[in-house]
């Protein structure tokens, strides 16, 4: 039919993982440093100066890890750290979300089945 689903082929997810690492670690230092859409508009209409940071304690400001002499490494490392943090945070949060509902969750996949069949088994 016309339905699609997420691929179950592990290889494709591994490739995505590799692409993510390459993008975050190797390509990020070579990204365009021109102002992006919003920054361009802010410059053109002269309100970029209104930008301020209410927190100065970000550990890796502007995607550059401090204390490393090579720019490419500063940015690439920031990218890899960010990608890893993202993976860990989302994994943790979503695990916690599904974990709590797990007793009931058997029923979410098969809809009405779980409750009814367990009742029948009794």
């Amino acid at each position: 039919m016309n339905e699609v689903r997420l691929t179950a082929r592990k290889g494709r997810w591994i490739v995505l993982c590799v692409i993510t690492l390459i993008a975050a670690g190797l390509l990020s230092p070579w990204a365009s440093s021109h102002p992006d859409g919003l920054e361009r508009v802010a410059e053109d209409y002269e309100f970029l100066h209104r930008a301020e940071a209410v927190h100065e304690w970000a550990p890796i400001p502007d995607y550059e890890v401090g204390g490393i002499p090579w720019t490419a490494l500063r940015i690439g490392l920031a990218g890899v750290i960010g990608a890893a943090v993202m993976l860990a945070v989302l994994w943790g949060v979503l695990r916690a979300l599904t974990g709590k509902g797990r007793e009931r969750a058997g029923g979410t996949d098969h809809g009405h089945g779980a409750g009814a069949s367990s009742g029948a088994a009794d």
Binding site: L16, A24, A83, A88, L90
Partner: peptide, 8 residues
């Protein structure tokens, strides 16, 4: 989680 990492 992996897609989140890719998006980042």
């Amino acid at each position: 989680a992996l897609i989140g990492s890719f998006v980042f």
